[in-house]
Amino acid sequence: MKMIVVFEKAPRLRLIGHLDLMRAMQRALRRSGLPLRYSQGFNPHILLTFAAPLSVGMPGKREIMEVPLEHDVTPEDFVQKLSSALPPDLPVLSARPVDERHPAPMALLTAAVYEAQLEQVPDNFQQTIDGFLAQKEINVMRKTKSGLKPSDIRPMIYDLRLQGGTLHMALALSEKATCKPDLLLQSLFEFAQTERPRALITRLQLLGEEDGVFKPLESL
């Protein structure tokens, strides 16, 4: 069986890179005493996949990983064992057993919800956002393997709202199309023609789709 696990990467750990996080999680799993599966080969390592790497600097409220297991374990037992092996800033929130044929979370991922806490909100910013979203195309330059290339991110913005000092965003995140929140902020503040304020961006939720409706990835 495989376990779909939801965990949090707390703000204190936001500057930890993806590889470091993965190593920390592998060591936690080794401490947990759970029946893990190892890769074959010269340097066997724990089988473990993350739905989507988090950028350095970004905390994650509900991150998802898939842990293949040697034999069946109840989700309660899994959560309890893994929790006791994790540091306080990396709590495990839930676990759901799925069978071997269940597609990998990474393959089901289509979008993510973010929030950006802005240090200052420009005047009439809601109007700016409305104007920004009313554009038919939002062309930005993106770094690709073959240099900078123009690309339209408008279809990748599923939601963009201001609530108090916080910007809520739902953006495409999949193997086919991804709009990073940083890129969106850059484009938005260029459109607003104001200097971009400091902002702590947090990934709140990973999403997949069922019958054309977004749902939390861990429930799919």
């Binding site: 204190r12 750990l13 890179g17 920390a24 060591r27 540091p87 306080p88």
Partner: peptide, 21 residues
């Protein structure tokens, strides 16, 4: 927190490691 965003290898300064007391 602001300085950490400006320096190389910021993760070395954050503490909070497993088994730190």
């Amino acid at each position: 927190e602001q300085l950490l965003e400006q320096v190389q290898k910021p993760a070395q300064y954050i503490g909070g490691e497993m088994n730190s007391v």
